[in-house]
Design a protein around this nucleic acid. Structure first.
Lengths: 228, 228, 228, 228
DNA sequence: AATGAATGAGAATTCATTCAT
DNA sequence: GATGAATGAATTCTCATTCAT
């Protein structure tokens, strides 16, 4: 019905889907309240349990008003995923700033990712649910993150920090997948005795993972020129 | 009402949830037809688009009959995920049989996983969707696979085939995550010019991934005893 | 669909609705078990909550077997009401035996009615529910009881024990109604501190009612020949 | 989920169960149409045969709209019984106004009750069915009527119009029961040759009943101080 | 005589979306 | 801009009854 394209140009000035005109200041505030409410409701209840009524009630606005700002439930969900993607990437790149080496940067990037996930555990579930709600948006989400990874790996290969024989695209997707499942297993599933989720990834797990990554990426002097 | 526990003892003789008695031969056949139909419908339409009407129509049985065999849509979904888990693991262990070394076995396991995914692309989506439908069942699915991985890594560490400094649990989850995302990106998303999904994982991708894994797991003679 | 007439000739040898032939000894036993089970289930759950499955399970027989003995859920319900009617009337006439006077007999009849109600509180609900399930059977139930009342009043008027100016039919229905509502209010609704229903009607209530009835029925010497 | 309590405060401004807010004028009109339609449908078909589809069709509104005003079929039924209770009592107290004596008032009250029943024969069935749908509401219905009766009897005992030895509560329930069954037998069941229900209670029956009541209530000068 | 698998009409209920105010 | 009443397609689930074994 509505294509995700509507919403993927995420930096553009928001326009009303009803009038096609840019929003007034009051309108922008309402839109923001809707997005914030949607974030909470989707995070707490998941896509299918969430409803427009719940979102508008949480936002404190009238039900009908919703459709002045978004085409559909799917479209606000997509806008939200786009927004989360920006925030995750921001958390990651912030963490990577000033890293001494590529491998350090890699570790720092993961740390940023895990920090975001730990701080918004339910929210990250929203992103994963996009696979079943709006696959295109999920692709976009993954692709944007992988893009950065891949570029980093590629330049690190040139400086010799990363094993030149690796395929940067495949390696980037592999790293992304590792982060996802480690995050799911050791952050989202983990609860202490009182049922409280951890505030951050267990450092031992993080170190174990960092070593795994180091191994995978670092040039191997013992095998240089080796295998097919 | 129904807990996933009902369905997790996957080898037990199936019993009717309506009467609590074991199924007759005729009943077992009907149950099987329902599961097969559910597999198709869930794969094609996803959990929420699927409906019991669609499933029973596909199975060619009456709507009410469904409830003689399953409590709800969720319960047949869970039974299906359990069944898929068994089949994925079978595909993996079959592929690993007779591997010469641990690293070979690892590669072979991935190959088995990718083969299954390539042959049932939509089906694997079903498993992933379980995260949002029946999280306990998804945990079980992942845990069962990881369990095997972890045991394999642990014994390979003893023989020295795998870097002893790695944490086998973390490594196992990392490998699992890699497989998932590589499979998603290079199998489920991939289409040729005619929109046909690939029959198998692109060998170049597979090799690239194999090298990544080898790097990650193999003992590093140049750093032996090295880092924190 | 099925008319209550099927079942109203309550003393006839029961015949199978399926074959139209009289039941064998084994068949009669099964029929009796069904009726007993139905009595319990209807009493506990009411007509609409009760189901054939529940009845046959309680009776310990197969579901399909039910239809060898009764046409429908309604028809077993009707059979049950007929049966209860017989038992209530038996309880009443037993109590009335050997009463010294008509007014004594009247009181005794009520006592018999209340005793039955107190002993089978839920069961008497079944009879009342017949108004909404099978009105003809309820009419029959009431009419049969009223018939006896009316005859008793009529003959007592001849002996002068009961005010000759009263219309025996109207008086009989009035008495019936009194019994019903007093029974409902002071037996079915009453619970002690532990939620236990009373084992019998509170004697004070019974006496108060008896005086009301005495007043209503006894000839009034002070007004004899009086009012319109 | 919904307790009958929701609906028992019958004079309160109606609020939407969906939003919890008071109704707009338009909303109140819709609610009234629903109640009127429900009255007809319940009266014609009984509680279990009635359905929300039938009610909304009769009301000429959309199916989903029903749930903006009532939680469930049971809840509109309860609202209806409450409403009928108010109307019956109104009919009774109107008839009793200006009665010369207590016994006259008693007769007049019954006349009012029978008039209402005669004018809405099917409707009174609705009230009786409440016993099996929502027992609390039925209790409330009876209790409210009996309350008035009892107070009237008590004060008439003080003036000496009613036999002081009677228990007013028991007498009130007895009178209520008489009215119910006389009404059922001589109004609801009665049909003339063309199957038309009577427009009012047969005066002969009414007089017979009035005499019964007079007898029951009037002080007996011949026995004053008499029995146990 | 007994069984229980199969059936499908029908019920209640939800919720994204529209539109008149 | 904002509102919330109205809508109805779609969904899940129940259960009296049938019928082949």
């Amino acid at each position: 019905m509505s294509t995700p394209g509507d919403v993927l140009d995420d930096e553009a000035t928001p326009i009303s889907p009803a009038t096609g005109r840019p929003l007034t200041k009051r309108g922008e505030a309402t839109r923001r309240r809707l997005l914030e409410a949607a974030e909470e409701v989707f995070a707490e209840q998941g896509y299918h349990e969430a409803s427009i009524v719940k979102i508008t009630e949480r936002a404190g606005i009238g039900l009908g008003t919703f459709y002045l700002y978004f085409d559909s439930k799917q479209s606000i969900f997509e806008a939200l995923v786009i927004d989360l993607n920006r925030r995750v990437r921001h958390s990651m790149s912030e963490a990577m700033e000033g890293a001494a080496s590529r491998l350090d940067a890699e570790r720092a990037g993961f740390a940023g990712f895990f920090r975001f996930t730990a701080q918004h555990p339910a929210l990250y579930r929203v992103v994963r649910e996009a696979e079943f709600v709006s696959p295109e948006v999920l692709r976009l989400h993954y692709s944007r993150i992988v893009e950065g990874y891949e570029a980093g790996l590629r330049s690190a290969q040139q400086t010799g920090d990363v094993d030149r024989r690796l395929d940067p695209a495949v390696a980037a997707w592999a790293l992304m997948g590792m982060g996802e499942l480690i995050g799911m297993r050791f952050l989202l599933w983990e609860r202490d005795a009182d049922g409280v989720p951890p505030a951050e990834l267990d450092p031992a797990v993080f170190d174990a993972m960092a070593m795994f990554i180091d191994n995978a990426l670092a040039p191997r002097h013992d095998q240089e020129g080796g295998r097919s």
